[in-house]
């Protein structure tokens, strides 16, 4: 569904390329996390998916459309919804429902159809009661859910979250992650760019970026066991995994599949 073929990208005046010969394939319906420290190239990668950035060399193909063809850009952006980091800087209008309508309005959709899309989108993020509220009275988590609703109103097949949880408090983060998980259950392909490894334990797959390259691409349990690789990439595994690895050093044999507190207790108690 998303295909990167030998993509290299260099920002103007930059010495090092931000993406370096990246090849990647993402299947329909998958839930993929892209992790890396600041400057690892993970956001640059995300911005290639909907043609906000175009590869210096190589190609990106989304739903069969190549991003470097001008006429493909609008159809691609309609398929790929993208939410960003700062909840304040991606909402365009004052009133919640007007903001959600912004995307479909750009596509020139029939007013009645926009109305029903807006209602549907607000319902699926659980914000129906806020339709006529002013955006600036909402919490960070609520703003991000409105941003997601604005994307859903475009009826995309792919949802890209570019560090959308980074500025939220724990409850806002949970709100957003729960919303995204429920969307994934309805068949949405989700790509989550993040630096918080805690958020990635339930993904199908984790792509680890470092210096513009994909350094690891595997299931969470396999990636979290790559202790050295994570350290080299300036990443910290989830707290529970850190404890698990430390206990292993004490001589307890705990399998790779242990990723949360419950599983850890389950694995370690019989050994005591």
């Amino acid at each position: 569904m998303i295909q990167f073929d030998h993509v290299t990208f260099r920002y103007e005046n930059a010495d090092e390329p931000a993406l370096c010969d990246v090849s990647l394939r993402i299947e329909e319906g998958s839930f993929v996390a892209i992790v890396g420290h600041n400057g690892s190239g993970k956001s640059t990668l995300a911005k290639h998916i909907n043609g906000l950035l175009l590869p210096s060399s190589g190609t990106v193909t989304v739903c069969g459309l190549q991003t470097n063809l001008e006429e493909n850009i609008l159809p691609i952006r309609q398929q790929v919804g993208m939410a960003f980091q700062n909840p304040d800087n991606q909402l365009v209008t004052t009133i919640v429902e007007e903001d959600v309508a912004f995307g479909p309005e750009n596509l020139g959709i029939e007013p009645n159809e926009i109305r029903s899309r807006v209602d549907e989108a607000l319902a699926s993020v659980g914000m129906t009661n806020y339709a006529e509220k002013a955006v600036h009275h909402l919490s960070g988590g609520q703003k991000q859910r409105i941003a997601i609703a604005g994307i859903l109103a475009l009826k995309p097949r792919i949802l890209v979250l570019d560090e959308a949880t980074a500025m939220l408090d724990p409850s806002g983060r949970k709100e957003l992650i729960d919303t995204v998980k429920s969307l994934h259950k309805t068949g949405m392909t989700v790509l989550m760019v993040t630096q918080y490894m805690e958020e990635t334990t339930e993904c199908d797959r984790i792509v680890v970026m470092n210096h513009g390259k994909v350094v690891c691409d595997d299931t969470p349990k396999a990636v979290f066991s790559e202790v050295e690789l994570l350290a080299e990439s300036n990443l910290v595994p989830p707290e529970t995994v850190k404890v698990r690895n430390a206990l292993r050093e004490l001589g307890y044999s705990i399998p790779d599949s242990v990723l949360n507190a419950e599983q850890l207790a389950e694995a370690v108690c019989p050994l005591l």
Binding site: G81, D88, F102, P104, E105, G108, P111, I114, A147
Partner: peptide
Amino acid sequence: FRKADELATAMESRCYHGGEGRTRMHQ
């Protein structure tokens, strides 16, 4: 300036391409 830049990116991502062919929910 940062807000303007980020907002422009977000608007582009949401298929904004000027007033051409745009409709409105509230007529």
